[in-house]
């Protein structure tokens, strides 16, 4: 990579900062408790729309891991999510009615808020249906991980998106507010992932899993990307480029080892496929606010109409991070 490429990527990063700066006008502050943030706090940044039913468990899960503060952008919820979040002592909330799509699928808003409040903190950028797991997460709080990353001088931590699904039809069991979604969506695909390297940004591009197997078996190229880098020791000069799949400066994307070793990594358990999914995908299809003309949601609705079962007899049932590590979906690296 020559100086010219570096320079162009630098410009790109600056452009993202300018975008984020302009898009800040779209955000209206509902509840700003960021003054409570301690310099050593671990923060969550998230964008959501109509997720009231998931919020109690989402907040509890991450509080239990040791997250100290939530910075959330509410994109025009009308189900009471906003009112619910407003009440939470550790949530700072912004709201917007503007287009999710035109804010680069929320990236601009989060880039702005992270630049403003995330500098110097370990920041976890996750959606409400994503549960972050990492090596030893059953015994060690998130701070143990970030302390170890600090000591190892690692700035970013990768966590692949792992699609979880129920064993029956997707809508069969009703998800109750506060319930652990993994009680319903407990199954996943363990060994059908495809990886290639993006030479420009140096990140890995991972596709596969249940969604590729069921929805994209005839058009694999458009299967959704599963690589994510959600945990970053944020600096105000950083910027997410495309969702949380990649960042600039691109050194942050090197969360993998190329000489044969394994770096430590985690997983985001993606509990999208609950009974809320069908309604959600219908709504998203109408709003047309998702990536690549919402082709993903179009593929879903085409398939789900007749047989909404993702489970196969080769699916694995989730029973903890050690299983995921053993199957080779994440790694302890040299953390012991």
């Amino acid at each position: 990579m020559g100086a010219w490429t570096s320079y162009r990527l630098r410009l790109k990063r600056k452009r993202h900062h300018v975008r984020a700066f302009r898009k800040r006008r779209e955000l209206t502050c509902v509840q700003n408790r960021t003054a409570l943030i301690d310099p050593s706090d671990i923060l969550i940044f998230s964008t959501l729309r109509n997720e009231l039913v998931r919020l109690p468990f989402f907040l509890k899960y991450y509080r239990d891991l040791g997250v100290n503060h939530f910075v959330i952008v509410d994109n025009g919820s009308d189900d009471g999510s906003r009112e619910y979040l407003e009440q939470q002592e550790d949530v700072s909330l912004w709201t917007t009615q503007a287009s999710y799509k035109r804010a680069k699928y929320g990236v601009d808003w989060l880039n702005w808020l992270q630049r403003k409040y995330g500098h110097g903190h370990w920041c976890l950028a996750v959606d409400t249906d994503e549960l972050f797991i990492y090596p030893f997460c059953d015994a060690r709080p998130l701070r143990a991980l970030t302390d170890w990353l600090d000591a190892s001088q690692i700035r970013s931590f990768g966590a692949m998106l792992l699609d979880m699904y129920p064993s029956g039809q997707i809508g069969e069991e009703t998800y109750q507010s506060g319930q652990n979604p993994l009680e319903i969506a407990r199954w996943f695909d363990s060994g059908n992932y495809m990886i290639r390297k993006n030479t420009r940004f140096r990140n890995l591009w991972i596709q596969g899993g249940a969604r590729a197997r069921v929805f994209f078996d005839d058009s694999p190229k458009s299967a959704p990307a599963l690589n994510k880098i959600p945990l970053v020791k944020w600096h105000r000069s950083y910027a997410y480029i495309s969702s949380t799949h990649m960042l600039l400066p691109r050194g942050l994307n090197l969360v993998y080892d190329e000489s044969g070793g394994e770096k430590a990594s985690g997983c985001l358990l993606h509990t999208k496929f609950l009974d809320t999914f069908q309604e959600k995908s219908r709504e998203e299809l109408e709003r047309r606010q998702h990536y690549a003309n919402s082709h993903e949601y179009r593929a879903y609705s085409a398939r789900l109409a007749d047989d909404p079962v993702l489970w196969s007899k080769w699916s694995e049932e989730y029973n903890g991070w050690r299983q995921i590590e053993h199957l080779g979906l994440m790694s302890k690296g040299n953390w012991a």
């Binding site: 990886i195 080892d257 070793g261 979906l329 790694s331 302890k332």
Partner: peptide, 15 residues
Amino acid sequence: RRTKGRSGLLMQSRF
């Protein structure tokens, strides 16, 4: 695990 890794495994942090 960090220096050699699991032979024959391609994954998000070993490529």
